[in-house]
Amino acid sequence: MLVPINIIVNGEEYHLKVKPNQILLDVLREDLGLTGSKQGCGLGKCGACTVLLNGKPVHSCLILAPYADGKEIVTIEGIAGEEPHPLQTAFAEKGAVQCGFCTPGMINAAKALLDDNPEPSEAEIKLAIAGNLCRCTGYNQIVSAIQSCAPSNSDIQTEKRGKSNE
């Protein structure tokens, strides 16, 4: 049995026929070749598979493909414009990426947060990424990378944190 779905992924429209038991993550990775989204646990516990569905972060490993019908999806491949997204730059500069496995999901969650709340407090940042595990960085660099993307956060602060990390 195949179910027709229409989805917009990173701005491009796709008309697909999916198996109802297919997981959105598999459609993205296997059918569309967008391998930026990762499968960690496959159980909704690690956040490596986080994509944005109509602007909200979701675990694509727990979503049946037909659920996405008619919706807009953004994966890590669609985050950057001409230039890398400020979050991508900040993550790279602040040592918020080590092995990188959690990074696509982490950046998607952070993007959804900043889109909704451009000046999040540290507590709000921690709450937003609470569903994303990182086994490498210890989170401090991730939180400060996200903080540095708030519009009011002057470059002075960015520099200060950058130095103390070196």
Binding site: G44, G47, L53, H59, I63, A109, G131
Partner: peptide, 9 residues
Amino acid sequence: IGSWQIRNV
């Protein structure tokens, strides 16, 4: 409940 991702769905 769960995480932000879970609460959105």
